[in-house]
């Protein structure tokens, strides 16, 4: 392997303990794996044992879920240090976090909570990304959220907000296509328009996942980003639209709850690879995101 760390523009799968053995025994033909960073912040034990083995055979992406990038308070430096130690140990090809907050006061809420898109939020998020990229010594990707409410005081669109974050902080973006559909349905706008306006040049990774749908008798829907089932056909269509725009990127299948057998998850990844292959044939010269080797840090 020329560079065992780099994440190829292929399909990857979110790695779960229930699938450790299947992966190690079957050595599936997959581009890479992703893990939630917080699940590997224990001192030792089986999680590190298995991740070390699997990392030996595949590139790895670290996906943080607990740093509270959008929190009003300063970043949790102890948590950032844990993330840095994990990145040094496993040499991930990509590191990502969420446009969300999850801690307030001294309580951790264990959910990705929504933000008003204001100048104040923009400053806070960029300050936190600057600090995160400085400590990790690399560029990180920021994921678009799934939302269930909005804020009256938002002064810009989510796309304008994310574009400004990229310009100011130099971070990249993680485009979660399922989140696009969930938020667009819940907020009443067209997911296609969001995809078409998304700053694709900044995207370093794509997420695909399943959602739950609640409806009332009038047919109004509330989508919930549940990650508990197969990728929805609407999400596959939006994904193809991203690729049509030249967005060939490492693409993750996320399935976190009600886990299926490994074969089912693997079939989802093969489906993504099939769509990727189809677009490679049709558009071999599509623009490629090139993450910088290291993030430029002001000392």
């Amino acid at each position: 392997m020329a560079n065992p760390s780099a994440i190829p523009p292929r399909a990857g799968v979110g790695l779960k303990p229930q699938h450790y053995e299947a992966v190690l025994e079957g050595r599936p033909d997959l581009g890479w794996f992703e893990v939630h960073a917080e699940n590997y912040m224990g001192a030792g034990g089986p999680p590190h044992h298995y991740l070390t083995k699997i990392r030996g055979g595949y590139p790895l992406s670290l996906h943080g879920v607990g740093l509270s990038i959008g929190g009003a308070a300063p970043l949790d430096e102890a948590h950032l240090a844990r993330l840095k130690a994990l990145a040094e140990r496993y040499e991930p090809g990509l590191v990502s976090e969420h446009l969300a907050w999850s801690s307030h006061g001294d309580v951790y809420y264990n959910d990705l909570l929504p933000l008003p898109y204001t100048e104040e939020t923009l400053e806070r998020v960029c300050d936190h990304l600057d600090r995160m990229q400085e400590v990790l010594g690399r560029q990180v990707l920021l994921e678009n959220p799934s939302t269930y409410v909005t804020f009256a005081e938002s002064s810009m669109s989510e796309i304008a907000f994310l574009t400004a974050v990229v310009q100011r902080s130099g971070c990249g973006l993680l485009l979660d296509v399922n989140n696009v559909l969930v938020s667009a349905t819940n907020q009443g706008y067209a997911p296609e328009a969001y995809i078409d306006a998304f700053p694709l040049d900044a995207v370093g990774e794509i997420h695909l996942g399943g959602h739950a749908r609640e409806s009332d008798e009038e047919g109004n829907s509330l989508l919930i980003d549940a990650h508990d089932r197969a990728v929805d056909h609407q999400v596959w269509r939006l994904y193809a639209r991203v690729l049509d725009r030249g967005g060939l990127r490492p693409t993750l299948i996320e399935w976190d709850n009600d886990l299926p057998a490994w074969e089912t998850l693997y079939a989802e990844a093969r489906a993504a690879e099939w769509i990727i292959g189809d677009h490679e044939v049709r558009a071999p010269a599509g623009s490629q995101f090139q993450p910088p080797e290291t993030h430029a840090v002001a000392r």
Partner: peptide, 23 residues
């Protein structure tokens, strides 16, 4: 909180409860 916008009717009115439930 007053700053949070949820739909006035239909499932969207339950938007905030999704966060409560997730936590």
């Amino acid at each position: 909180p007053a700053a949070v916008v949820v739909g006035s009717e239909g499932p969207r009115a339950r938007g905030f409860d999704v966060y409560r439930n997730n936590v």
